[in-house]
Nucleic acid binder design. Structure first.
Lengths: 217, 217
DNA sequence: GTCTATAGTTTGATAGAC
DNA sequence: GTCTATCAAACTATAGAC
């Protein structure tokens, strides 16, 4: 926070990035003032405009940069071939590791889409669809080979992504479980969900549909 | 939007509630101005203060009221006894139905916790923990009876809630699937996840750990 | 209960000296 | 690249007439 006046450049840029991630993740983009951001970095508010043209551009740069990183990292981690189970395992391990390592950025990418202006939003949504498709392809393939049994692969895609991405909302570096433990636990749950073997053997209990309907107003 | 001037009362109150839910869900609490809210309702900005003391109280009332509804509805829908599978099925069906029926309110309850002042936040977090515990108890019970096989019931609780609550981020009333179809699909996935039967029989593929680590920066 | 008017802040963004 | 100073706009909240 305290800071000797003078030129910095790259150092300031990185400091702004980090402070911005932290403030936006904590309070949200709209609630973060540029004065607050500048104070966190230790510069004056007007100086921020050496690093972006306006507040919206700052947010977009953060989100876009992160999405590019995410895609590149996923492509490096994924198996091009192999059984659907192996690929799903790899996908899950990657996703958990990434969400644990960069929880703040991931969280912002989910929670601040609403703060993007239309053109910027469209660009980010397109990148996100690509990511969803990579998981969807694995699930489709697994259903085709019989490794997986899913009633609806689109719902399964959204369900698995929500389940894994939820990690960034509660994960803390000093938490109970190591990254490796979380990878193992979540891989187990995702595989069980995808195999879904015993699902149809269940005796569904009688439903008091009336009571349920009454409850949901 | 257009509106005849004059006294209303309860009608205005409900209009403010609905407009607030919509605006906050779309743009976020911090980004919603009271002028915007008043315009949506068709009254002047100062008149809002007949319905709340300040903006924060308005948000808290929305969230708190919804949490109370959620708890009451869950208690009405849940089975007090029965197999863990039956109770988990009931829980899932309820949760899906509620999130489909009141997606906006649910979404706000997740996304605007950050906008609550400390005391208000504490109250909401306490209510949320109760909700999590109800699911956690079902999972614990199922593991004890052997119906479920979960490596970590706390992680499973968070994973299932994230998976189900994710619905409110993408659900649209005019979507492809009916509420009933979604209930069935998600119940199948949740039960498969909880049973996790074949999970340990998997041959885990060899992992290029180096590549994975490199990917997560 | 609603209106108009306004007080008192805070905000994002710009201009110009160093 | 950073600072100081400032503008114009927007905000929450209040006061008082009807």
């Amino acid at each position: 926070m305290a800071r000797i006046a003078g030129s910095s450049g790259p150092r300031t840029e990185e400091a702004i990035r980090r402070a911005g991630l932290s403030l936006i993740a904590t309070h949200g983009y709209a609630a973060m003032s540029l004065r607050q951001l500048a104070a966190e970095v230790g510069i004056q508010q007007g100086s921020l405009y050496n690093y972006f043209r306006n507040k919206q551009e700052f947010l977009f740069d953060l989100i876009r940069g992160h999405m590019l990183d995410l895609h590149a990292a996923l492509d490096a981690a994924l198996l091009p071939e192999g059984s659907a189970e192996a690929r799903l395992t790899r996908f899950t391990e990657f996703h958990v590791a990434y969400h644990v390592a960069r929880a703040q950025e991931v969280f912002i990418c989910y929670s601040e889409l609403r703060s993007l202006e239309p053109d910027n939003l469209a660009a980010v949504v397109a990148m996100r669809r690509d990511y969803e498709r990579k998981l969807g392809d694995i699930l489709d393939h697994g259903c085709a080979t019989g490794e997986f049994r899913l009633a609806d692969t689109r719902m399964a895609t959204l369900a698995i992504l929500a389940m894994l991405s939820g990690i960034c909302t509660w994960y803390r570096p000093d938490g109970r479980l190591s990254r490796e433990a979380m990878q193992e636990i979540f891989t187990g749950m995702v595989l069980a969900l995808a195999r879904g073997e015993a699902a149809e053997a269940v005796a569904v209990p009688p439903r008091r549909r009336g009571a349920l309907r009454a409850g949901i107003g």
